[in-house]
């Protein structure tokens, strides 16, 4: 049986370790998605501010985050910042921070797009019934904006989940890293080990992201 490559996955603790690694990736994804959602809403609202200065400040933040590759941000925070500030942040914590910064920027832009796509008279009708500016956002603008942006926000979430695999490069031991470790110890005995390990990782990501994508499609239909 040992010539069946797929057995590599189920030898010893291998599968359990892969799941554990996946858990690390998912924890980073969940934390950063939550932070990004909350901060993204505020950033998005600020991006529709009446004040040019506020708008351009937000815009520069978004552009800065987008122009520099995410991997570079990870390196900057993990290697450079520690040098400059003389403090060693744990890799997973750095991952949380960088992914939140990125997610907030992207989510903010989605919120901005959704809010500005609403007709202006929605805001005015809200004001006309005596609501304050804040109440108009709370009861009129945001509920409608969320419906519009949910499909694209969910796509962003799946993108963030997949992109967490980058954190392996600052030394976080997540599913990809554990996969590599398993391959290293098995490759001599089982030449096809790497194929099976990557196949199972593909499958695990698929199992997580696919239902989320389906849900996005479903909402898109229901709310259009």
């Amino acid at each position: 049986m040992s010539d069946w490559g797929i057995n590599v996955i189920f030898q010893g603790q291998n599968f359990l370790r892969l799941l554990e690694g996946l858990g690390v990736s998912m924890r980073i994804a969940v934390v950063s998605v939550l932070i990004s959602s909350v901060c993204g809403i505020f950033l998005g609202l600020l991006m529709t501010s009446r004040y040019v200065a506020v708008r351009s400040l937000c815009r520069s933040y978004l552009e800065a985050v987008r122009i520099v590759p995410l991997l570079v941000w990870l390196f900057v925070f993990y290697f450079e910042l520690t040098k400059v500030l003389h403090l060693q942040l744990p890799a997973e914590f750095v991952a949380d921070i960088v992914f939140s910064i990125w997610g907030t920027a992207e989510m903010g832009d989605l919120v901005r797009g959704a809010v500005t796509s609403l007709p202006a008279h929605q805001r005015e009708s809200g004001l006309a019934v005596g609501l304050t500016r804040w109440q108009v956002y709370r009861y009129v603008i945001l509920p409608q904006a969320v419906r519009r942006l949910l499909p694209s926000a969910i796509n962003l979430v799946t993108r963030m989940i997949k992109t967490t695999s980058l954190v392996v490069l600052i030394g976080v031991v997540e599913v990809l890293k554990i996969g590599q470790q398993i391959i290293e110890v098995s490759i001599l005995k089982v030449p096809t080990a790497s194929f099976w390990v990557y196949a199972i990782i593909f499958f695990l990501y698929f199992i997580i992201c696919w239902p989320i994508s389906l849900w996005a499609k479903h909402l898109e239909k229901r709310w259009q």
Binding site: P119, H121, Q122, E124, S125, G126, A128, Y139, V140, P143, Q144, R147
Partner: peptide, 10 residues
Amino acid sequence: VFQSYDLFPH
């Protein structure tokens, strides 16, 4: 009351 239908659709 405005010309455009301005009810809140949600």
